[in-house]
Design a binder for these strands. Structure first.
Length: 456
RNA sequence: GGUGAGGUGGCAGAGCGGUUAUGCGUGGGCCUGCAAAGCCUAUACAAGGGGGUUCAACUCCCUCCCUCACCUCCA
C-alpha cells in the first residue's frame, strides 16, 4: 500500500515486512473534540483497518497532550487542577470516538506520565550541546540541526525574516524552541535544570521513541501540525538518535466551514458531541472520508444530508440482502462483477487511501442490490453480504444487528400486518407499523414484500 | 513576503494523454391504502485566463489570475 509522504513529496510504499508501527498525534485535552479532529482520526482508523484486513499487524499509538497552557488557563478559570480538565476531556474523547466506531489504539500515552522519559531525552540533547539552558527554560538550538525545515520545506532564513517569529530574549536564536519551560505553578515537575513543565513537541518524540522505536513506519496528524510541531519533532528525535525518524509522514487536510478553517479562535467549531445528536456515526464517518484525505472538506449541512441519503440506500440494500429467502436463477456474470468491485475497492485504498473511490465501489454494490431485486436469491445475497460486510468493516461503517429471536418476532408482526392489509383493515395494519416503529424498526412496503429496517 | 495544496457541469467530487466517472439536485414516468423509500428515464457539450508540447490535453510544460492552509497554539 502506498501513502503520500510529506517529507519526500512522493508516494511511498508502506514497509509492511513486519509490524506497521504508526504514531498519530492526538488531541490536546482542554475542550471538546470537533469534527476536524474526528476526520484525522477516522482517516487513520481506516488506514489501520485496511492494513489489518490484509493480514498485516498494526501497532497504533496515539497521544493525549495533557499538559499545555490552554489546559492550565482553563483549570485556573474553573479553579480546579489541570488534571481535572484533562481527565474530563479524555473521558469524553473515549465516549465520542467509541461512538464513531474508531478502533482503540494499542496505547494512548499521556505526556504527564512520561516526564522522566522526556527529561532523559532533553538530557541527551543537552549533553550533545544541541540544547542549552537559558533563564526561561531549556531550548533546542535549531542552528545545530542543519536539516531543519526539511519537512515543511522552509528555509531558516525565510523563517527568521518572517515577522511572526516570536522574539524572546531568553533564546539564542528566535527559531529555537522550548524543550522544558521553567515554572513553579501546577502542573510542574523537578528537573536537573529547575522546576517546570515540558514543551509541546518533546512529548511526541519521547513517546514515539519509547513505544515504537527509532525508525517506525508512519507518523501523522493534521496538516496544521507540519510546522512547527512535526518539524521540531524531527529535529529533536534525529539530533538525539542520529537516525531517521519516521519513514512516512502522512498529513490529513483540514475541515473548513464557509471556506475557513474550523478552529476555536474563530468560534466556528462543530463538536462531535453536538453532531452526534443529529447524525448517525456512519454518516459522520462517510462525511469525513468522502473526499481525498489530503484535501480540505468544507462543512455544510447539505453535504451531510447528501451522505445521509446515500447511506440510507446502503442500509436499505443491506436489509434487503439479509431478508432475501427466495431461490432462483441468479444474474449472469454477477461473480465477475462482484470480484471487480471488490478489487476496485481495495485497490483504491491501496493507492494512497483513496476512500472516495472505495466508497463509490461500495455504492456500486449497493446499486446492484437495489436494481436487481428480482434476481436476488438467497445464495447470491449471502455472497454479496460477505463483500458488503468486508467493505463496511474497512470503512468502519456499522449496521446494528438484530437477534434471531427479534427477527422472528418482526417477521411474524409483518405477516400479521400483511393479513390486515389484505383485508383492508388499515388501522390495525398501521397499528403494527407504529408498534414496530416504537421499537426502532421501520417498514418499507414494496411490491412483493415488506422490508424492515433498523433505525439509526 | 515565503512555503505547500488546489481551481472540473447547479452542488459535491474522482480518474485518465484519445473512449459520457459517479453521487446529490432538478424534470418526467412507474409503483403505491396511507407512509417512507425504491426503480426507470431525461438533464449538465464540465474543466480559472493566456500561451506552448502533441496527430490528440481536463490530463504534460510555461505564465498570469484566484482560493485555501501553514509561517503563533491548532487535527
Amino acid at each position: 500500500m502506498k501513502i503520500f509522504d510529506t517529507l519526500s513529496g512522493n508516494e511511498k510504499e508502506i514497509d509492511s515486512s513486519g509490524k506497521v508501527r504508526i504514531y498519530l498525534c492526538g488531541v490536546t485535552v482542554y475542550d471538546e473534540s470537533h469534527i476536524g479532529h474526528a476526520r484525522t482520526i477516522i482517516v487513520f482508523d481506516i488506514l489501520r483497518r485496511h492494513l489489518e484486513s490484509g493480514g498485516i499487524e498494526v501497532e497504533l499509538v496515539q497521544n493525549f497532550t495533557d499538559v499545555d497552557d490552554k489546559i492550565i488557563n482553563r483549570a485556573k478559570r474553573e479553579n480546579v487542577l489541570a488534571s481535572a480538565i484533562s481527565s474530563r476531556y479524555i473521558q469524553e474523547y473515549y465516549d465520542e470516538f467509541d461512538a464513531l466506531n474508531v478502533k482503540r489504539a494499542a496505547k494512548y500515552p499521556k505526556a504527564t506520565e512520561h516526564i522522566q522519559d522526556m527529561l532523559n531525552l532533553v538530557q541527551g540533547l543537552v549533553d550533545k550541546k544541541i540544547a542549552y539552558v537559558s533563564k526561561n527554560g531549556v531550548y533546542f538550538s535549531v542552528a545545530k540541526f542543519p536539516d531543519y525545515g526539511k519537512l515543511s520545506k522552509k528555509k531558516t532564513e525565510d523563517l527568521i525574516s518572517g515577522a511572526r517569529v516570536e522574539v524572546d530574549q531568553a533564546k539564542n536564536d528566535p527559531l529555537d524552541f522550548a524543550l522544558w519551560k521553567f515554572s513553579d505553578s501546577d502542573p510542574s515537575w523537578e528537573s536537573p535544570w529547575g522546576r517546570g513543565r515540558p514543551g509541546w513537541h518533546i512529548e511526541c518524540s519521547t513517546m514515539s521513541l519509547k513505544y515504537l522505536g527509532e525508525n517506525f513506519e508512519i507518523h501523522g496528524g493534521g496538516r496544521d501540525l507540519i510546522f512547527p510541531h512535526h518539524e521540531n519533532e524531527i529535529a529533536q528525535s534525529e539530533a538525539y538518535s542520529n537516525k531517521p525518524y519516521a519513514k512516512i509522514w502522512m498529513h490529513v487536510g483540514m475541515i473548513t466551514i464557509d471556506g475557513e478553517k474550523m478552529s476555536k479562535s474563530l468560534g466556528n467549531i462543530k463538536s462531535i458531541k453536538s453532531l452526534l445528536k443529529s447524525w448517525s456515526p456512519n454518516v459522520l464517518r462517510i462525511f469525513c472520508i468522502a473526499g481525498h484525505y489530503s484535501k480540505p472538506i468544507d462543512y455544510s449541512e447539505e453535504l451531510l444530508k447528501e451522505h445521509e441519503t446515500n447511506w440510507n440506500k446502503a442500509r436499505l440494500a443491506y436489509h434487503k440482502l439479509i431478508q432475501t429467502e427466495k431461490d432462483g436463477q441468479p444474474i449472469e456474470d454477477i461473480d465477475s462483477t462482484l470480484s471487480q468491485i471488490k478489487s476496485e475497492f481495495s485497490k483504491a485504498i491501496d493507492e494512497n487511501l483513496n476512500t472516495h473511490m472505495a466508497l463509490s465501489a461500495f455504492y456500486r454494490l449497493v446499486t446492484i442490490c437495489l436494481v436487481n431485486e428480482e434476481h436476488l436469491t438467497k445464495s447470491l445475497s449471502e455472497k454479496i453480504i460477505s463483500i458488503f460486510e468486508e467493505m463496511m468493516n474497512v470503512l468502519g461503517l456499522r449496521i446494528e444487528k438484530v437477534s434471531e429471536e427479534e427477527k422472528v418476532h418482526i417477521q411474524s408482526l409483518i405477516k400479521q400486518r400483511e393479513e390486515f392489509r389484505q383485508q383492508k383493515k388499515y388501522e390495525e395494519a398501521d397499528g403494527i407499523r407504529d408498534k414496530l416503529a416504537a421499537k426502532g424498526i421501520e417498514l418499507k412496503d414494496e411490491i412483493h414484500q415488506t422490508i424492515w429496517m433498523k433505525k439509526e
